[in-house]
């Protein structure tokens, strides 16, 4: 098995989880209703757990300790998609991002249950059992604020979809390891994932009385190859500010 290809995939997934966890946690105390505050925090905790599990797999493959990987790299060393980097914006933006991101995560982890890398296949089973609640939550709210909502909520969700849907394709950007990943059976590949994602997203969006904009897939590419939005480095600066006081200390 191509170890570098495997690590590349794990880094992409782990960094996505870490950064979206960080973003979702920013809703703590600020949600539109208390119940949503709590839900976003729960989801953030799960994502942080996924990130830790993935960094632990990397650690087993010879990479540094999870805390060191997560809290000492700069943006040029990150593999996350640009989708997860954007600030939380208003609730419509965060909800639509959560819906698009978690739909992709759900399919990715379902597919990864067949991975030739046993520890990843095992982790994928565990994570899948959590992510189904994340997509259930997202889909319920998209419907609630779409076809079951009022004029304003529907317009807001539609507008957020128009903005976020094109950015979401950043999740499926390939790296130079793609062929090796597919050839070694580590993962079926970003193309398959994207096809299934478009299908699933289209069905939920249509059922919610909303439409999808046309999107140029590649505009928001870059993250997987270390080209990030201007939002990532400030996020990392904030995330590591205490840890960096003394990275060798126990916190």
């Amino acid at each position: 098995m191509n170890k570098e290809a495997l690590k590349n995939l794990l880094y992409r997934m782990a960094d996505d989880s870490l950064i979206i966890a960080h973003r979702n946690s920013e809703w703590t105390g600020l949600g539109p209703i208390l119940e949503e505050d709590i839900a976003f925090s729960s989801i953030a905790q799960d994502k942080l757990g996924h990130a830790l599990a993935l960094y632990s797999l990397l650690h087993e493959l010879g990479e540094a300790d999870p805390d060191i990987i997560a809290f000492t790299r700069n943006e040029k060393q990150f593999f996350c998609a640009q989708l997860v980097e954007y600030p939380i914006g208003e609730y419509d933006f965060s909800l639509v991002r959560h819906f698009l991101f978690d739909t992709a995560e759900k399919i990715r982890y379902e597919l990864l249950q067949q991975s030739s890398y046993e520890p990843l296949a095992k982790l994928a089973k565990k994570v899948s059992s959590e992510i189904k609640y994340h997509t259930f939550h997202a889909e319920t709210w998209i419907k609630q604020l779409g076809s079951n909502g009022n004029e304003e909520s529907k317009a807001r969700i539609q507008s957020a979809l128009n903005d976020v849907y094109p950015i979401a394709f950043s999740l499926f950007e390939k790296t130079s390891f793609e062929d090796a990943i597919v050839a070694d059976g580590i993962f079926v590949g970003e193309e398959t994932l994207q096809l299934r994602w478009v299908e699933r997203v289209t069905s939920i969006v249509t059922a919610s009385g909303l439409t999808l904009p046309s999107a140029d897939y590649s505009v928001h590419y870059g993250g997987r190859n270390h080209y990030h939005t201007e939002y990532l480095q400030p996020l990392l600066d904030e995330m590591t500010v205490v840890f960096q006081i003394d990275p060798s200390a126990e916190w």
Partner: peptide, 12 residues
């Protein structure tokens, strides 16, 4: 937080 979330509560 209350003002930003008002549209969500109204939609419910």
């Amino acid at each position: 937080a209350e003002i930003n979330g008002e549209w969500v509560r109204n939609a419910l």
